[in-house]
């Protein structure tokens, strides 16, 4: 029992840390394309970790194993890349300027051109 409680605590702390990292990335990275990285990766792992903590918590509370939270985790991991892809497509469409020292910046019009 006590081990499971420790496990819950550890997963909660990991989750909170990565959610915070994702938001700090959103706060301080310099251009839009770089900002896109932090929430898609860090926040997804953060929410996954907190949901794992929730699974462990409800399992040791005694109402039998509850793995419903697994569905939310699955949903987040499926949708996060799609959201990121749509946002970056939209950013290319409105010609959001990347940081000037970005590699291959001259190819941007090439990438954008889908006609």
């Amino acid at each position: 029992m006590i081990i499971l409680e420790y496990l819950t605590v550890i997963f909660l702390l990991i989750g909170g840390f990565f959610l915070l990292v994702g938001s700090i990335g959103l706060f301080r990275l310099p251009d839009f394309y770089m900002r896109l990285h932090a929430p898609t990766k860090a926040s997804t792992l953060g929410i996954g970790s907190i949901l794992v903590a929730s699974i462990i918590f409800y399992s040791f509370k005694g109402d039998g194993v509850s793995i419903k939270e697994f569905l939310i985790t699955l949903f987040m991991f499926l949708t996060a890349p799609i959201t990121a892809h749509m946002l970056s497509k939209a950013a290319l469409h409105v010609r959001q300027p990347p940081r000037p020292d970005t590699l291959n910046i001259d190819q941007l019009e090439n990438i954008r051109d889908r006609k």
Binding site: Y33, T40, T44, F77, A80, P81, A84, H85, S88
Partner: peptide
């Protein structure tokens, strides 16, 4: 996969 793994996001 690329969007979820090391420092890369697929754009187009």
């Amino acid at each position: 996969t690329i969007s979820l793994t090391p420092g890369t996001v697929s754009t187009e």
